[in-house]
Design a protein around this nucleic acid. Structure first.
Lengths: 356, 356
DNA sequence: CAACCGCGTGATAGCGCTGTCAATATCGCT
DNA sequence: AGCGATATTGACAGCGCTATCACGCGGTTG
């Protein structure tokens, strides 16, 4: 026959109900929505629960109600601090709500992502936040099966799974390169690490801008599959100097690389921006305090996380979400590292700090 | 009476069992431990599950088995990239295992920590990883009630809740200051931000070392409750220069501050290390590539996360954990920013890169 | 004054899975 | 062949909670 009898010390809804002199279902209602219970019983239940040290069993709740209050979040890297800002936004938004977050790390692998999505779906999450737009067909199918609100973050693109919030990496990089061109730079190098889909799209933006200006040269592109770091930034710059000693500017696909380039320039006694201009991407906090201050493309990562989370909650709780695809834009933060005295050969139609 | 009849499309263990021609419990066994099922049935079940698109229901599993495979992780900040290394270790260790991680953010608030612990306990986690040793009595009680392995990380201290892995922040800072003293520095400033418990202990180590050398001066200490950042590093250094213009070295409670100090020195044309030596804490990646390279105290954060996770798994799976309290030590990475030509007045008994 | 509504409450019947123990099949060995 | 030991399988009874429907009650409506 069945299992061992009930442990004596265990406190269930039933025990609380008995002590409070109400039915278990009323206690259940009290915990989910206190307002639906009359004031008198509310007090009795409250004190009974406290006396017994009652702790709701989430598994039982999830099984009976066929849903959970877990939000699954999938990001490709924990090391890349770009994501920590997004996460902060997400965590801040869910702060104090009844939802809890389950964070998983795809390591930039689509297969890993599939595996994790499958795992999430088993938990019947209330919502899902995934990074990027490059899910496999299988991955999309799994998400669809979850039958819950989904937000894709970090970039915008066609065919959202459900909702989407981000910006165009192609346009953002195009704008950064345009700024350098406007400063009179012509031999603009591109440094990229990891080369994940979003960095690829930045490279695309670079190519578009360089070709449009008629100054594209593949030798100016130096990339590596290795994850980004300050050291790698210095190394890539050294490689670039070998391939194209005449560079007058460097666009770095992210800020760590830019900092590495700055250090390498200091090491080589190359004047920034006089001899070489530097532009980064993401506008990390340190960019504005470096010497010289470093130009970067600001992306609204915190807001992205915050709004993604809000979109999920609105959708779950039945509030209509007006904008299901949000482009947060970006801003080229022009600083000393790319501000040149020399006459701009390209019209400087993109003024300082232009919002796109 | 009860609820609506079963949805027709739903795939449960029972459906898979029927199609495979076995009993539900056998299917259950197959999913938890395929080896306990004979090869013939294994194949039949596998194909049946695939045909039906069966997805196990984790809530039901958790309810029936009275446990989950969720590991709760509590960290105080998502922005402070000290934790991203620890997290990477944790995620790497659980990678491919059956456990999944639930990460929560206490924001350096003990009350918040309590709330989150309470939330975790409702899920009956398989294990818990918490940051620091300063839980409230209430918090400790909640954790104890969870009745699962617990590892405290980031520092060592007396009275572990269960297991513990970290290092002594007092000793680590003491060693860093000793290094500066050995270089002949006497007016050593202390810069600290956020001032969480671990930074407080670093300050303690600083005071111990300075007093032991007879050179303690409270005017050399500049701190703020604001979270750490490069900009704050510059600001704190400026404050320090006002309070004590004769400083010959700065110890920064973390590396962001140190970078900010370096930039501020560049701005003020103060030679590092000739006029002022700089030492940071944590040994972030960029410290070794700065110009000059920056001395820091390396802490083994990745290993800490990895081993904390391993300890949890060992404990859960019944493998005895030999070392329940692990001191990972630290290493003073002596670099250009604190290496002085001038004669050392204090015996340099702590050679370069000494492991403690 | 009957019909109707909405609120607060309760009884019932599962949600989908697994722990426990029993039953059966298989095997090695004397 | 006979025996116990071992592997494999199954029956049963919940795990603790909530969806659903039913009911009683006071007040509103035509």
């Amino acid at each position: 026959m069945g299992r061992k009898r009930i442990k004596p010390g265990k406190v269930r809804l039933t025990e609380v109900a008995a002590l409070a002199g109400v039915s278990p279902i009323t206690v259940s209602r009290f915990f989910r929505n206190p307002d639906t219970v009359s004031a008198g019983r509310r007090l009795r239940i409250e004190s009974a629960a406290k006396d017994l040290g009652y702790v709701p069993n989430l598994a039982a709740r999830a099984l009976a109600s066929q849903r959970t209050e877990v939000i699954g979040v999938l990001i490709p890297s924990l090391t890349n601090n770009v994501f920590s800002d997004v996460l902060r936004g997400i965590y801040d938004a869910f702060e104090g709500s009844r939802y809890s977050i389950q964070l998983a790390n795809t390591r930039y692998s689509l297969l890993q992502e599939e595996r994790l999505l499958r795992l999430f779906v088993m938990q019947k999450p209330a919502g899902l936040i995934v990074t990027g737009v490059d899910q496999t067909a299988e991955g999309r199918a799994i998400v669809q099966a979850a039958d819950c609100p989904v937000v894709q973050i970090m970039e915008t693109g066609p065919e959202p799974i459900d909702m989407m919030i981000g910006f165009s990496h192609v346009d953002a990089c195009y704008a950064a390169i345009s700024h350098l061109l406007a400063q009179g730079c012509r031999r603009i190098g591109f440094l990229g690490a990891r080369m994940d889909p979003r960095v690829q799209r930045r490279l695309q933006g670079y190519q578009n801008a360089m070709k449009a200006a008629g100054v594209f040269d593949p030798r100016l592109i130096v990339t590596t599959a290795v994850p980004t770091s300050t050291t790698i930034g210095g190394n890539l710059f050294s490689d670039l100097m070998l391939k194209a000693p005449d560079v007058d500017a460097v666009f770095c696909a992210n800020d760590d690389l830019a900092l590495g380039v700055l250090f390498e320039c200091q090491r080589r006694h190359i004047a920034v921006p006089e001899q070489i201009a530097i532009v980064g991407f993401n506008d990390m906090e340190f960019m504005a305090s470096a010497v010289p201050t470093l130009t970067s493309v600001r992306t609204n990562r915190y807001e992205m996380g915050l709004r993604a989370a809000t979109m999920i909650m609105d959708e779950v709780e039945g509030r209509p979400v007006a904008e299901r695809v949000v482009d947060l834009g970006f801003e080229v933060m022009e600083r000393q590292s790319s501000t040149l005295q020399r006459a701009a050969a390209v019209p400087a139609d993109r003024a300082s700090g232009t919002k796109w």
